[in-house]
Amino acid sequence: MKEVLVIGGGIIGLLTAKELMTAGAAITLVEMGQTGRQSSWAGGGILSPLYPWQAPEAVTALSGWSQAIYPSLTTELLDTTDVDPELTQSGMLIMDTAELDLATAWSARHGQRLEVVDKSTLHQIEPELGPRPERALLFPEIRQLRTPRLSRAVRRYLEKRIKLREREEVLELIIDGNRAVGVRTPKGRIEAEQTIVCAGAWTAKLLEQLDNRPEIQPVRGQMILFYAKPGQINHITLHDSHYAIPRRDGRVLFGSTIEHAGFSKRTTAEDKEALYRNAVELFPILKRTPIEDHWAGLRPGSPNGIPYIGGYPGISGLYFNAGHYRNGLVTGPASARLVADLALGRPPTLDPGPYALTAAR
C-alpha cells in the first residue's frame, strides 16, 4: 500500500485525500489549523466560474468534469456522513450582457444551456430585483452548495479512514537527493513515499526552499451575509462582478472584494459598506434585511486562475494541487482526480499539460 502525505486540509486537500484513499493508498493529511477553515469555508460555493465564457480552457475543462460528478459525490457524502452539502440547482442569472455573443458561442461549444431572458421574464423569475436591464443571461443548470457543509462532510468521511493531523504546521519539506521523503513539523518527521502539497494560498511559502515555485499569492475577499427569508431571491445573481447567492434557508450571501493584502484576513468597515450598497442596489428588499455576518478569506491566486497540478520537476515523489483562485469548489473534484492519476501512475483523466509548473499561463 502506497503511503501518501497530503499537506493542507482545505477542500482541495480533503478531496485529494479522498481520491487517493479510494484508490487504496494509505493517507496522512496534515493541516496547520482546522480542516476546511480557510478559503474553503469563506467561499460562496458557486459551481461555475462567475462569467464562464471568460475562463481559460484549462479551467473550463476542470469545471465541466467536476460539475458532472458533484451530484453523485454529494449523494455519497450525505449517505455516509449524514451531512448535507446542500447541492442546489438555483441557476445563475447574469445582468451583464455586453459579451452576449461570446457567451452564446461558449455555451454552444461546451454544451452549457444558456437562455436570454427579457425584462418581463426577469420580473417573473426575480420579482425583487432592482432596476432591470432589457435582457439578461440565465444559465439555468448551474448549481451551488454550502462550502462549510461540503468540507465538514468530506472530513467526516475521511476521519476514520486516514491519519488526520490538525493544528500541526509543516515547517519544511525533507528532500533526500532528488526525492521528497516527507516533512518536518514541530512534532517531528512525517515520512511518506509521496508528498502532495495542497496548501492553497500558503503553497508558495511552503515551497520557498525550492528553486522554482508556483506563482501563488493570497488574494483577500470579503463577504456579507443577510438573514433573509426563503423565496425572496431565487437565483445566483451576478452584476458588475458582484454576486448574490440565496441559500435554501433564505440567507443571502453577497460578495466579494478582490484585495492584495498579504496574509491578512482582517475585514474593513469600508468594504462592508461598499458591499452593502451594491447588494441593496441589486435587490432593494435587502434594505429591510439584517446583516448576519461579515468575513474575509484568502483565495490562492495564480496567473489567469489556472491551478498548478502535477509533479515537481526534478524531484520525484513531490506533487502539488494548488492555486485555484476563485474556482476551487467547481474545479476541486477534477483536480483531485488528476493529481491522484499522476501520483499513482494512472492514465490521466484530463490532459495535465496546462497545469504543469512549467506551463505558460
Rank of each mutant, 00 (worst) to 15 (best):
L47S: 03
G64C: 14
T195G: 01
I216F: 00
G130S: 08
Y51D: 07
D176F: 02
P52R: 03
D341Q: 10
Y51F: 13
L15Q: 08
V116S: 08
T28K: 12
P230D: 09
R288W: 04
R346D: 14
T185H: 12
R213N: 04
L93Q: 02
A180V: 11
I174Y: 00
L158N: 01
Y51L: 13
P348H: 01
L329K: 04
A228M: 09
V197L: 03
V30H: 01
L29T: 01
G130Q: 11
L73K: 01
G9M: 04
N327I: 13
L102M: 15
L286N: 12
G200Q: 04
P218H: 07
T195M: 05
T104Y: 08
E99F: 08
R337V: 05
Y243P: 02
F283M: 07
S302L: 02
E259W: 00
R132L: 12
T147N: 06
R135F: 15
I258E: 07
E169Y: 01
T331V: 02
A108I: 06
L62Y: 14
L15S: 14
L173T: 12
E76K: 15
V280P: 05
I236A: 06
E99A: 15
Q217V: 07
P49L: 13
E270M: 09
H294I: 14
G111A: 03
R149P: 00
S151C: 08
P354E: 11
L14C: 12
I69V: 12
L158Y: 01
Q222C: 03
A244G: 15
T268P: 07
I27K: 06
N178R: 10
L138G: 05
S151E: 04
T289A: 05
G111Q: 02
F263G: 07
I190E: 12
G182S: 11
L298M: 08
G188E: 12
R161C: 03
L164D: 13
G231E: 08
K229P: 09
D84C: 15
S241Y: 08
S256F: 13
I11S: 06
F139T: 02
V4Q: 00
H260I: 06
L15A: 13
G43V: 02
R266V: 15
L357F: 11
L78V: 06
A61K: 12
E169D: 05
L77T: 06
T104F: 08
F254V: 12
V252A: 10
R266M: 13
V83Y: 10
K205Q: 14
S335K: 05
D84S: 14
G9K: 04
D341R: 15
G200V: 04
I12S: 07
G91E: 00
I236W: 00
T81V: 05
Y227Q: 11
D240G: 09
D293P: 08
E19L: 00
R337F: 04
I46D: 00
G44Y: 02
V117Y: 12
